[in-house]
């Protein structure tokens, strides 16, 4: 078994938090993983991505070869498209529909959606709305993780366990908000 994920977003949107939860859940379920992160310069409001690879055996490359990702999981719709060439033909796109418009030449949103919908398997989630419903717009990353959990080869419980671990330090309320965000995302992906 192998499962390759491209995580995408804009610096500050918390894609490394998504990675933390998946990494640890995978480890708990006895899988191997490698996860290449981007730090430094590009974190300042720029495009960020992470290659996350899960397998039941040794993983060599830290990078996913083109056309081999099982999923693009993105917290921002334009960023979803940036990595399309990594997706394998039957791969899944799990993307937020909430644009992050910190650039002047942001394309017309409808066109971005139209492109995303060209992927045979795609889920578009209004992460901002659901995160707000969960209690904080900052929880959009966990909404998207919840949506992705429909496809991931990981148990819902293991993921939730590490959401708990991740936010524990910030208090019970923050944990609850993020767990709620996860649930709302998961439900939305089914609908």
């Amino acid at each position: 078994m192998k499962y390759d994920i491209i995580l995408a977003g804009v610096g500050g949107q918390g894609i490394l938090s998504i990675a933390f939860v998946i990494d640890n859940a995978a480890l708990e379920e006895g899988l191997f993983f490698k996860q290449a992160e981007v730090h430094g310069m590009s974190q300042r409001g720029g495009a960020v991505q992470s290659h996350l690879r899960l397998a039941d055996g040794h993983i060599y490359s830290d990078l996913i070869p083109l056309g081999q990702a099982d999923m693009i999981l993105s917290v921002e719709p334009l960023e979803t498209l940036r990595y399309f060439e990594y997706l394998k033909p039957d791969g899944a796109v799990v993307s937020s529909s909430t644009p992050y418009t910190n650039i002047s030449d942001y394309p017309v949103l409808e066109e971005v959606f139209r492109e995303i919908k060209k992927a045979p398997v795609h889920v578009l989630i209004d992460s901002e709305k659901l995160a707000r419903e969960a209690g904080s717009v900052r929880a959009q990353n966990m909404v998207m993780l919840g949506a992705a959990s429909r496809f991931l080869p990981l148990k819902e419980d293991s993921l939730k366990k590490y959401i708990q671990v991740l936010f524990e330090k910030r208090g019970a309320q923050v944990v609850q908000t993020n767990l709620r965000a996860f649930d709302l995302g998961r439900q939305a992906a089914r609908a």
């Binding site: 720029g46 495009a47 083109l66 060439e85 650039i103 030449d105 992927a119």
Partner: peptide, 30 residues
């Protein structure tokens, strides 16, 4: 990248979906 190494070894390219005509705006750090 694994793809560059594959090419040097004579393996065929395996690019996935293309965004075709669509112009991807760059998002530099700021």
């Amino acid at each position: 990248t694994p793809d560059l190494v594959a090419r040097a070894l004579g393996l065929p390219e395996r690019a996935g979906l293309k965004t075709g005509e669509f112009k991807l705006a760059a998002r530099p750090p700021q």
